[in-house]
């Protein structure tokens, strides 16, 4: 990893895409790129994080993101501890700040935090001495997801600039959408959001996106179609009347996809609700669907994030020249 790349990232934490510069995002993607190749090799172990402790602190259930961070940490040689809120003292009524102080006293090097409330990860980051990576907070941000999506697109299309990307579905509750909108617009892509009006947050157009209620019109000429997961409890009348209606108007199927560019690619952060937001036929189309590739890129991106955020520690202690 070149020192020049690392120089371009100026923050102690990774709390969101907001606040990152185009250069910083490019640095993260460039470093991620090297880990993609590394992960495809036979020997998947480095000692970059040897002696470092990484705690995965998850206040919300997640298998794939937690596993992805765990693998990333272990492949870089770190010690990884997983803490699920269900089995922690949170259940016993400890406040978030007390939890942060307790963990801080154990001297971890990196905390990876997911929390159901927006802003909780920012709050926690102010109370600890280590680096914090936001693995998703409420409806706010999920920066590593946006980075892995960007990496996936960049590898397939060679660029992000000038692409037309449609993000479809539950924008209102989606941290993935918010992080992606910011990252993609910073990188010069054009972003459309497609959703029923009840699933669009107020003022979304002020984030630099075009808004569509009609999926067919919204998909016209798109290069990338990003589908979002819609939780079933939101499909019973409050936001959307029924699964049937949602799939009819906003589910991605062959017919609607035909409105996009013929080489348009399909993405989904997972886990998918087949037959709700996406038809199996398109989700499993190996020529169009990037869904499995996204998972692969996820590990590489998280390795790059851990690499970058621990670089300062390493340089302080080892004096190896990296700032």
């Amino acid at each position: 990893m070149s020192a020049a790349l690392a120089l371009r990232y100026r923050h102690r934490h990774l709390l969101g895409i907001q606040g990152l510069s185009r250069e910083e995002i490019e640095a993260l993607l460039d470093i991620s790129e090297t880990y993609v190749a590394f992960n495809r090799g036979a020997d998947k172990k480095r000692d970059l994080l040897a002696g470092r402790t990484l705690i995965n602190l998850f206040f919300e259930n997640s298998t794939r993101t937690r596993t992805s961070f765990e693998l990333a940490g272990k492949r870089l040689g770190g010690d990884v501890i997983n803490m699920q809120a269900a089995s922690s003292s949170i259940k016993k009524g400890e406040t978030l700040i007390d939890t942060a102080m307790t963990l801080n006293a154990m001297h971890p090097d990196v905390l990876v935090v997911r929390h159901p409330e927006s802003g909780a990860v920012n709050l926690l980051s102010q109370k600890v001495d280590c680096a914090v990576i936001n693995a998703g907070d409420g409806s706010h941000e999920h920066p590593t997801q946006a980075l892995l999506d960007a990496l996936t697109i960049r590898r397939r299309r060679g660029r992000l600039e000038g692409l037309l990307v449609a993000i479809c579905g539950d924008i209102l509750h989606s941290r993935v959408a918010r992080s992606n909108i910011q990252l993609l617009t910073i990188m010069g892509a054009r972003v459309r959001v497609i959703a029923p009006p009840t699933l669009l947050p107020g003022g979304i157009e002020r984030m630099g996106v075009e808004v569509f209620y009609d999926m067919r019109r919204g998909l016209a000429d798109c290069d990338i179609v990003m589908m979002l997961r819609l939780q079933t409890e939101r499909m019973q009348g409050a936001y959307v009347p029924s699964i049937r209606e949602y799939f009819h108007f906003y589910g991605l199927d062959r017919e609607k996809l035909a409105e996009a560019r013929p080489d348009a690619l399909i993405m989904h952060p997972g886990p998918m609700n087949r037959g709700v937001e996406i038809d199996s036929e398109v989700a499993d189309d190996i020529d169009r669907s990037l869904i499995r590739e996204q998972v692969e890129m996820g590990v590489a991106v998280r390795m790059a994030c851990l690499d970058l955020l621990t670089r300062k520690l390493r340089s302080n202690e080892d004096g190896d020249g990296d700032p």
Binding site: G237, A238, P241, E245, H248, F249
Partner: peptide
């Protein structure tokens, strides 16, 4: 507007 006119859940307006 709402299922069974109960004032709670939206009907399938699109369909």
């Amino acid at each position: 507007v709402t299922r069974r006119l109960e004032g709670r859940d939206l009907v399938e307006m699109g369909l």
